[in-house]
């Protein structure tokens, strides 16, 4: 199991730093937990990363579990993606 704590600000810089880390973590059968409760601000870069991670995990048969913060849920709603993310109910 891999647990990754998402940074407070999920902007281009931090999303960029996370891509390869997430990519390496997503192996078939591996369980990956993204702890997002610290995320106070998330931009489109961050949301795109979350969506790509979700779809990638599915394609690779990895198990992804995301615990979003209110800021993440709000951003997803703004972007019209609220129903698409299969995130855990509470942060």
């Amino acid at each position: 199991m891999t647990m990754i704590t998402l940074p407070a600000i999920m902007d281009r810089t931090s999303a960029d730093a996370l891509v390869s880390h997430l990519d390496r973590s997503m192996a078939p059968g591996v369980s990956v937990i993204l702890e997002g409760s610290d995320v106070a601000r998330i931009g489109l870069s961050g949301l795109q990363l979350m969506l790509s991670a979700q779809q990638t995990a599915q394609a690779r048969s990895a198990m992804l579990e995301v615990h979003p913060s209110p800021a993440m849920i709000s951003a997803a709603r703004v972007a019209g993606l609220a129903e698409i993310f299969r995130w855990a109910q509470s942060a």
């Binding site: 870069s45 961050g46 795109q48 990363l49 990638t56 394609a59």
Partner: peptide
């Protein structure tokens, strides 16, 4: 949107 191995967040 590409998968993680090809994703450019910019």
């Amino acid at each position: 949107l590409p998968s993680l191995d090809q994703l450019t967040v910019e």
